[in-house]
Computed example of a mutant assay.
Amino acid sequence: MKKTTLTASLTVLLITVTAVAQQVQRTLSFTLNGTPSSEKALVINGKTYIPASELRKLGISVTATKTTLTLTQSQSGGANGQEGTAGCSNQTLFNGLWRFTLTSDLKQESEYGDPIWVLEAEVRNASKQSSRLDFSGLQGVGFVYADGRVLSGEARDFSVDIPAGAASRGQFVSSRTSNPQDLKEQPVKLLLVWDENVRKNANVRFDLTCQK
């Protein structure tokens, strides 16, 4: 287990609307691993506040006492872990709903002049009825680096109804980046984050550095 310490740039507090209404400078939309959140971040006196409930979606446990707020991220949670199904890049991984197979090595391409990371993939509907990947609880796509950094991404070309037992091909694509550090190194994991309200422990992690 490791404890995550909040910095001045991101402070999470249990606050009431009446206590901060006159101090709010602006509200911000934000995303979790590339997926837009329905909540809003508040900027108060130059600091940004987000609901603790949103951190829980990233696998971070949030507990509060009278004087202390503790954030705890287990080795099996968070962007570089998370409970669910894990395997090597050449394996087919099953999360109870879908079977995922990567059909290409990680490659770097250009989109509108900016570099992106791309993985070709096949997804197979393992349910007993027609379904769509983007309507079945997929909350976010992340390209994870060795140091734990996460570059958000998205699933592309999967926005179609896939009959039970059938498969469809598409891509998992990172967001565009011009950060030299993101381009100097390659991501080592692909992380697919699932909505626990749809299915618990359905996250999928591909280790891009191993094969079996």
Rank of each mutant, 00 (worst) to 15 (best):
Q73R: 12
C88I: 02
S61T: 11
R169E: 15
Q171I: 03
F100W: 15
I162S: 06
S110W: 00
L55W: 03
S104M: 10
L102F: 03
L93I: 12
R156W: 00
V160G: 08
V62E: 07
G148L: 13
T72R: 07
S110V: 01
T63R: 06
A86S: 15
V118Q: 08
K107W: 00
N125I: 08
E111H: 02
L58D: 02
R99P: 00
R169K: 15
T85Q: 10
V144G: 01
L93A: 14
Q139P: 05
A155C: 03
T65Y: 05
N95C: 11
P163Y: 00
D114I: 05
S130W: 02
V144D: 03
F94V: 02
G165E: 08
T70G: 03
T65N: 15
Q91E: 15
S127M: 09
P163H: 01
L133H: 07
V173T: 07
V123P: 04
K107L: 10
L58N: 04
A166P: 02
G59H: 07
N125W: 04
S130D: 10
A126L: 13
E83Q: 14
F143I: 13
A79Q: 12
V173D: 01
F172N: 03
D147P: 12
S127C: 04
S61I: 06
S110L: 01
G96L: 04
D105W: 00
L69P: 01
V160F: 12
E154P: 01
A121R: 02
G165Q: 09
E54M: 13
Q129H: 09
C88E: 04
F135I: 11
E120H: 08
P51S: 11
T72I: 14
G87L: 12
D114Q: 14
S168V: 02
T103I: 09
E120F: 00
I116L: 09
V144N: 03
E122D: 10
Q108L: 07
E111D: 07
W98T: 10
